[in-house]
Simulated assay, not measured.
Amino acid sequence: MLEKDYQSVGGEARQLWEKGYDTLEKKNFDYAMELLTMALEKEPAFFDCRMALRAAQVKKYESAGKLAKMAASAGAATHMAAAKLALSKKNYFGALNSAEKVLCADPYSSVGHRVIVDAAHALDYPQTMISSLQLLKKANPKDNEVAKELGEALEMLGDWDTAENLMLQLAQTNPEDQELQQAYKDTAAKATIYRGNYEGMMSGKNPLAASREEQDEGPQLTAEEALEEKIYHMEERLQNEPENFKLA
């Protein structure tokens, strides 16, 4: 199922999103979260709505006091259990809905984002995966498994250049990890095939060695820089520029 932007959604889900977005701009975060959550329950593939909801969650959390945050996190335990149960029963839409309620209490919850990643993967929602994986990666930059998942999600999205760049960085920073070396080679091969350029493969040159030679010639775009360019509307932007949140 393809993810949808606001131009691809109509009916009640569109109306709820419009009202929720207007409410978000008026800084009524609780009501905005309620409306946007309802819209997502009607149209889970509505990615623009999910990002608007994430903006409301972040702003609500940032404006809350310490005690309010603690109380909200404690109250989210039921939703967290429901999200895990739904995921275990392969009720992926239910898992997404419950996970979003967890994030309404704590938008940085690693458990909530992990459920969203797993459910979104099953539903073939790469943009939703990327938005949560980027936050998980920021929380734990050395987690190679999360980085590999991010590369896979970028492949699903068809963003081969960024996926290859990310896997190259992983391979270069973990030269002893043979699994990562092979994962990079697989991604590079698929990217080459996708681009229809077989010259590098036919030359017999090791892609990792070639990439390292290119690095010696000048600075290369890092995975983080590439991700920032490609998925600017994801979690990191919502955290850094919540007041400037705009739909693409």
Rank of each mutant, 00 (worst) to 15 (best):
Q182I: 06
A83S: 14
A226L: 01
A105F: 02
D22A: 14
Y125N: 11
A163T: 01
M51H: 05
T37A: 13
G112T: 14
G75E: 03
L96T: 08
M51V: 03
Y198D: 09
D186Y: 01
F47P: 02
R14M: 10
N97A: 15
E18P: 02
K59W: 00
S211N: 08
K185C: 00
A223F: 00
L154K: 06
L123Q: 12
Y125G: 08
P107M: 10
A120V: 07
M129H: 03
G75M: 04
Q169I: 00
Y92R: 15
W17E: 13
Y184C: 02
K205G: 03
G112S: 10
E213L: 10
I116S: 09
N244S: 11
L168W: 13
G218P: 00
K148I: 04
D216A: 11
D186P: 01
L170V: 05
A248T: 08
K246W: 01
E18R: 08
A226Y: 00
K60L: 10
H79L: 07
K230A: 09
N91D: 15
N144C: 12
Y61V: 04
N165W: 00
K190P: 01
E243A: 11
K142Q: 10
D143I: 04
A86I: 05
L16F: 03
M167D: 04
L2V: 13
Y198M: 15
Y61C: 06
V58Q: 13
L24S: 04
Q134I: 12
Q182C: 04
R54G: 04
A72C: 05
L150R: 04
C49G: 06
K42M: 12
T187I: 07
D22C: 03
D30A: 11
F245E: 06
Y108L: 15
Y108S: 14
K205Y: 02
A55S: 13
Q215Y: 02
A71F: 06
D118E: 15
S132P: 05
V111F: 12
A72F: 00
A153G: 09
L24P: 03
K26P: 00
L150E: 06
L136T: 10
A189V: 05
E243Y: 01
E213S: 13
S73E: 12
K4M: 11
Y184D: 07
E241P: 00
N140P: 03
Y31H: 09
L157C: 09
L136Y: 07
L136H: 08
Q127A: 12
E62M: 11
K142R: 13
A83W: 05
F47D: 11
A86R: 07
M33P: 03
S88K: 15
L168V: 02
D161I: 09
E179K: 10
D22F: 04
Y6M: 11
K230H: 01
S109Q: 13
D143V: 00
